[in-house]
Simulated scan of single mutants.
Amino acid sequence: MAVEIALLAPALVLVLGLLVAGGRLWFARTTVVEAAQASARAASLARGAGEAAAVGTDAGRQSMITAGLRCATSSVQVSTAAFAVPVGTPATLTSDITCDVPFGDVLLPGMPGSLHLTGRGSAALDTYRAR
């Protein structure tokens, strides 16, 4: 009986570690994509390109902080080229978020120290509002 437990215990610990790592990876990917979408939406509500970049960047960062995602390094970039499109023409703002999520505390063989995740969000500008 002791030999069986000695053989099964490492396998069970490995399975538990894989479940924890998989859950954290799912959470991190979902949070990055949601933050990118929130960033684009906030930027689309701004009145000008400069304000949209600032508001979108802040919204993306706040969304990741609120969700509890810790990134070793992160960046939020909001493309405001849609504000240059003439009024009456459909235009879309995009937001790209990158995050290096540390996985060093998950002690699994072959698990990288961190994973580089990216998310892209987009939101339409009102076609007939003044730009």
Rank of each mutant, 00 (worst) to 15 (best):
P102G: 11
S44A: 15
V85L: 04
L16I: 13
T118I: 05
D126N: 12
R29A: 07
R131P: 00
A130N: 09
R129A: 12
D126F: 05
C71M: 04
A53R: 14
R70Q: 14
C99W: 02
A84H: 06
A11N: 04
M1C: 04
S75T: 14
M1Y: 05
A2S: 13
V33N: 13
R129H: 10
V3L: 14
G68K: 12
S95H: 05
T73H: 10
F103E: 11
Q62L: 13
A40E: 07
D105L: 12
W26N: 15
L117M: 06
T89M: 02
T80C: 01
S114D: 10
V85A: 11
P10Q: 12
Q37E: 13
A130I: 10
A53L: 02
L107W: 11
R47A: 13
M111E: 11
L93G: 07
V78N: 02
R120L: 09
Q37K: 12
P112H: 09
G88P: 07
R70N: 12
T31R: 07
A82I: 02
A130E: 14
G121D: 10
Q77G: 00
G113M: 00
A28G: 09
R61Y: 07
G48E: 14
D105S: 14
R120M: 11
A35N: 03
D96F: 04
E4M: 04
S44V: 03
V101W: 12
A43L: 09
V87H: 09
G121T: 10
G88A: 10
Q62C: 01
A72I: 06
